[in-house]
Design a protein around this nucleic acid. Structure first.
Lengths: 197, 197
DNA sequence: TGCATTTGCCTAACTCGATTAGGCAAATTA
DNA sequence: TAATTTGCCTAATCGAGTTAGGCAAATGCA
């Protein structure tokens, strides 16, 4: 803002500020131009730290995936069964509600190799870990993993998009009951043996 | 493309072409500039038919919602119970896979009044109609509606984003089993009375 | 401490998309 | 055929993204 010499730009600072920006004004609006404005710097100055606009978004996405994986991982640690399921789901949803821009970023389309090196794989691993508390053999386990991913991403996506805004009851009530339902479903997954020794 | 006089632009033709464009190159890339190029026309010429870029996207979204509601409604007609559930889900998913750009458009954030006047309300009604075949009193019914919406939108969203691309088994297998699971879940929704006269 | 080198941000310049205002010719109507 | 409407164009502005090259501050080294 003040025209004072160097501001101390860094790829990392840009990405972090970009993520904050995304939370404030939306991931799509988190552009190099706006970011430069925030730093009191000319847009061109960003280009020594970030390759281009797409690169910036990719880095924000990777940061969000990382943060989200950390939160979920911390929440799930030491829990099992429904307890773990709930902790996972709530950590995921809470992150999305607290960081809507980052959440959108986490769903940004990454090219295959970037995705493979991202924290997205930790998400998959953690989802699978949740199912350790239930009795699901393959391929049922994979199907269940995908169901959980679908429900979480779908519900939170709809919620953050305002999909539940103009109807009762509030989203929280549905969320709680849906987690109960998912737990019941996982314990009695059709086609999988009910473990009854 | 040929500089021949008038091309016959219409709001309707623009929106329809815009939807096709979205399916080909992505909803975000379905811009006035690209659309004008397709019609062999200057960008400025679109502005007598469409207010601006946002208006264009809104209209594409409304078209997609309408089409999707029509497809789903046709598929569900005359069916009940699991049959209806499956028909609904498959119509929804098939539409998304065949029209990825339109599907993204259907999830475009509309302002409240536009949304209220859109075919989005038909979607909500139809989802609720599915549950007629199951025995769910309020508020369970609403929670179940939201679960279904979450699963469908979540699964298809992940699938079209390539989320299931690099793992076995294929998405279709999971989809089928997830529908089985949802049916079972709806028939034994926790907290709701199992209708056993 | 002084100099050389790196490096960070700037200016300048270009391209392209969105948008508005106003013009001219084709289509429509009478 | 004359009058009017209407459709697409030209011209022009603004802002975003991006690249190339410059100058000064920071840093490294003697």
């Amino acid at each position: 803002m003040t025209g004072t010499g160097r501001v101390g730009l860094t790829t990392d600072r840009l990405v972090r500020a970009g993520a904050d920006l995304a939370d404030e004004i939306g991931f799509e609006q988190a552009t190099p131009a706006e970011l430069a404005r925030r730093f009191g710097v000319k847009t061109a100055s960003l280009y020594s730290h970030v390759r281009n606009a797409h690169d910036l978004k990719t880095r924000i996405a990777l940061l969000a995936l990382e943060e989200l994986a950390d939160q979920v991982s911390a929440a799930v640690a030491g829990r099992a069964g429904k307890d773990a399921l709930t902790a996972f789901a709530n950590a995921y949803r809470d992150y999305a509600l607290k960081h809507p821009g980052r959440f959108v970023a986490a769903r940004f389309r990454l090219d295959a190799e970037t995705a493979a090196a991202s924290a997205g794989v930790r998400h998959a691993q953690m989802t699978r870990a949740i199912l350790r508390g239930y009795d699901l053999a393959e391929p049922h386990q994979t199907h269940a993993v995908r169901l959980l991913g679908s429900v979480f991403s779908g519900f939170v996506g709809l919620e953050t998009a305002g999909g539940f805004d103009h109807s009762a009851p509030d989203a929280q009530a549905s969320w709680t009951e849906i987690l109960d339902a998912l737990d019941a479903l996982l314990r009695a997954w059709p086609g999988a043996p009910a473990s009854q020794p």
